[in-house]
């Protein structure tokens, strides 16, 4: 009885003490994810096979499939974990901003810093982002939506403070800012731009995209 009560209590607070099996499963997942992260970085999304990932993690392909339905499931998990962490970093960065221009710049820079040391993975994410199925799934993921939300909030605050005019274009402006942010990864990935160069470019882009909402 006591045993059951404990489980019920744990369920209520949702901090279930993991069983040994659950723990082992978690460790397996972590090992697969670490190996996958490395192989996606080295060989790209198309280049890395489940077989390679399994062997790098020191397990059978069966054991990988017991934890992930397929390669795209595995990749999505890595991406979404990263993007969740990035959305948080962006939100913190935006809180330190002084006005919409500065706030947006801090948000952009937080993103470039985050991927600075893992550009190959970012490149793989862009490739997947164009797939007809995974692309829209990635864009509508809550993690990505909360990045867009950080931008939207900065625009709204600018409107509330009177620095920006409110208007029908706000939603479009937020989306365009996000896409401008994304587009600079091209420069970072393919042309090796430095953080300073990315920041300078982002600063100008933000100014251009905000210009229409500035009171003249």
């Amino acid at each position: 009885m006591m045993h059951i009560t404990q489980i019920q209590a744990a369920d209520e607070t949702s901090v279930k003490a993991p069983t040994r099996r659950a723990l082992a499963k978690q460790q397996t997942r972590a090992k697969v994810l670490a190996a996958a992260r490395r192989l996606f970085s080295e060989q790209g999304y198309e280049g890395a096979t489940i077989r390679d990932i399994a062997s790098a993690a020191g397990m059978s392909t069966g054991a990988v499939f017991a934890n992930f339905t397929d390669k795209s499931d595995l990749f999505r998990e890595i991406m979404l974990t990263d993007m969740g962490a990035l959305a948080e970093a962006m939100s913190e960065a935006s809180a330190q901003g002084n006005g919409p221009q500065d706030g947006l710049l801090r948000v952009f820079v937080a993103g470039y810093r985050f991927y600075q040391t893992q550009l190959p993975l970012a490149r793989a994410a862009f490739s997947v982002g164009w797939s007809p199925v995974d692309g829209p799934a990635l864009r509508s993921a809550p993690q990505v939506q909360s990045m867009l939300g950080v931008i939207t909030d900065l625009l709204r605050k600018g409107e509330e403070s009177g620095e920006l005019t409110a208007g029908a274009a706000s939603e479009l402006r937020a989306q365009m800012l996000f896409d401008a942010y994304l587009s600079n990864f091209d420069q970072a990935i393919f042309q090796g731009w430095t953080m300073d160069a990315l920041e300078a470019r982002a600063n100008d882009q933000i100014a251009i995209l905000l210009a229409g909402a500035r009171k003249s």
């Binding site: 060989q43 790209g44 198309e46 280049g47 490149r123 793989a124 490739s127 164009w130 797939s131």
Partner: peptide, 9 residues
């Protein structure tokens, strides 16, 4: 074509 642009190989 766009998706392939990010391909490694």
């Amino acid at each position: 074509y766009i998706a392939s642009a990010f391909d490694w190989t």
